[in-house]
Design a protein around this nucleic acid. Sequence first.
RNA 1: GUCCCCAUCGUCUAGUGGCCUAGGACGCUGGCCUUUCAAGCCGGUGACACGGGUUCGAAUCCCGUUGGGGACACCA
Length: 470
Amino acid sequence: MQPRVRFAPSPTGYLHIGGARTALFNWLYARRNNGVFVLRIEDTDQERSTPASVQAILEGLKWIGLDWDEGPEVGGNFGPYFQTERLASYKRIGDQLVAEGKAYRCYCTREELDARRKAFGGEGFKYERTCRERKDQPTDKPWVLRFAMPLTEGVVSFTDEVLGKISKTYGDLDDFVLMRGDGIPLYNFGCVIDDHDMAITLVGRGQEHVNSTFPQLMLYAALGWQPPQFAHFPLILGADKEKLSKRKHKEADLMFHAKNGILPEALLNFILRIGWGHGNDEVVPREKMLEWFDFAHVGKTSGVWNPQKLTWLNQQYFKLLPIEVIAERLFPFLDQQGYSISKSDPRLLKLVKALRERAETLVELAQKSATYLRKGVEIDAAARAKVLTDDGKKVLAVADEMLKAVTEWTPPALEGVVKAASEKTGVGMGKVAQPIRVAVTGNTASPGIGDTLELLGKEESLARIAAALK
RNA sequence: GUCCCCAUCGUCUAGUGGCCUAGGACGCUGGCCUUUCAAGCCGGUGACACGGGUUCGAAUCCCGUUGGGGACACCA
């Protein structure tokens, strides 16, 4: 049987980084096993679901390069893929369960329930099945549909693909709400029906869902359906070791990283490595993920978000990716800084080539690029004091004369000038290169002096040197 | 509080009973290279939570303790 997995986000905000990883693991599993990756939108939270969130989620998935075989924008044979468009199924199954005595209408109001919960002492409250034996079923009063848990003693268990065997006794479960009177299903209900109707063979989701697996399993049993396999992935924690939450952790927003100049390749690699490992491999590009991913190596322990490792990975991809790709990614950041040069500007690729090993993010790469794109430069006070001393200026003046005579403004020729100036003045190459560097970049750090001067061009280089010499 | 899950360096991890005086990576740190800064290379720092078993042998299996996380909605 062809494996079918799904990613089922709730469109109540941007794509959560944990959701992105859940999507990645499911996607990888599907792609590895010749399966189908389904995207289903669980938009049954009337208050919080928005079309804008749906868009944000689709965009997020596209940004990290995860494509889906069925779902929004692409359709499929198991649609519709929005839960609010599948209400008829929920109603039909709900009616069936009531008819079979496996579910019942509960007329307790929210207020009553809240009061009872409060009297109980808050969380841990279990519905006392007040309406379970109720004989009348008025239709003019608001109600919700509740699942009738078997009153017998029993144990529900399943073998999780990553966690192993997990069990829970019936007594720990209560008559949970399946559907509201208005026909909107709750998570456990909609999820089970859709997974069944969409022929999902394996449900891969975050560990925060292991406890909801039990009521879902009860539902499968009541319906006489074969449940899918389950795989619960470890959570991603913040520096405070708590689950990454949108409220508390800014890094929980996938696109936050995009804005910070992280490459999607690096981010994907990073989230893969939280919770999954392959020997000593750290840099695992997409092709390798596709080749190596398996649930057997998904860990059980939650992982803490480590921003330093993320930036390190980003740098690895700066070195790995073709400069054309990086240039493409850099463009919006250059634009943002007000340096909108043409995409065909020959300086663009040279800039990336010279600076990519010296930057950790696209933001930093754009900032460093700015030095080479603007007219003139402001010299850092400390750099000036240290390097552009009287002696430094003397050497600079000598180099300046030689540079003016250069006809082939290429790195080898320019490096040659440094060497020649060094020989002529009798000082080391460093003593020649540094004054030039500070004069043209305003700072003590830059790519090789030949590349630096080439990037700037003859005219701009000489203008900056002249200004520094004044 | 109740239930569920988890437990290797600060962090991400390798490890599926002998290959482990526990390997890699990030970070931190010493050095090399060098016209600067990076990058790169070489080295250092640093962990099997604790206590009992099982076994010829345990980071690996079992039990307990402790610790951590998650779930306890007419959210998903």
